[in-house]
């Protein structure tokens, strides 16, 4: 049912870049990536949990009524002027992990394509959630900030655990956080978006806040991971 509501078909150009591709895609790669994207789509069982919370600014930034505290300057800048925010977790499910595992034995190149398409698919899912939220809030005259995730800038990645606890993701969509702060299923994302009465000028998209800025292999090839030329 969520597949109908949200678009999760992988963008194969994006997937090609995720797997270290550059330049024009050759026909064979394009055809194989399209197969991979279809297979990921068939095996995906998308799940989303969303929770809107008022922000509590007494003694640091926190989500009212929950155990979640937001640390770092980046998130503070992002949520400047926001009275509340939305947190969510999105996943394309454990079936895609199993699919990739199987193909890692059968054909590693195709497995890497599936992996890249899985990453793209969960990004598409997040974009769809963001779009739906934007439509909903703009109807009541509110504005959304950019989407921001634990691990971006100085927002600690281990906050994923608290995001998942507050959203009860294990029970609701089957997403759990492991001992290395790694989420399973692997193709899962936690994120937050601020809700503001005024249009947000602060933007986080771009490479500035990315922890992989120095070692980024996409930038070495002259592109960003979201497909823009440098």
């Amino acid at each position: 049912m969520l597949t109908e509501k949200y678009d999760i078909f992988a963008d194969i150009s994006e997937a090609y870049r995720y797997m270290g591709g550059g330049g024009e895609m050759d026909e064979r790669t394009k055809a194989e990536l399209l197969d991979a994207a279809s297979l990921v789509h068939e095996n995906a069982r998308p799940g989303v949990v969303i929770k809107a919370c008022e922000l509590d600014r007494g003694g640091g930034l926190a989500l009212k009524g929950t155990c979640l505290r937001l640390e770092g300057r980046a998130v503070e800048a992002l949520l400047h002027g926001c009275g509340s925010c939305v947190i969510f977790c999105a996943t394309i499910g454990s079936g895609v992990d199993a699919l990739i595992r199987k193909w890692e034995i059968k054909n590693i190149t195709f497995a890497a394509m599936l992996d890249a398409c899985g990453s793209s698919a969960v990004e598409r899912l997040c974009d769809s959630v963001e779009k739906a939220l934007s439509d909903e809030y703009s109807a009541s005259g509110l504005f959304l900030t950019d989407r921001f995730s634990p691990g971006y800038g100085d927002l600690p990645i281990n906050l994923q655990r608290d995001f998942c606890s507050v959203l009860d993701t294990s029970r609701r969509i089957g997403v759990a956080v492991g001992s290395g702060d790694v989420m399973a299923p692997v193709k899962s994302v936690t994120a937050l978006i601020g809700i503001s009465p005024a249009e947000q000028k602060h933007r986080v998209s771009g490479c500035g806040g990315c922890p992989a800025l120095e070692s980024c292999k996409f930038r070495e090839n002259g592109v960003t991971c979201y497909g823009q030329a440098l």
């Binding site: 797997m19 591709g21 550059g22 890497a112 394509m113």
Partner: peptide
């Protein structure tokens, strides 16, 4: 030399 990329390299490895 960036004439081919990782996907093509992997395919050769396969």
């Amino acid at each position: 030399k960036c004439e081919i990329f990782l996907p093509q390299l992997m395919r050769s490895a396969d």
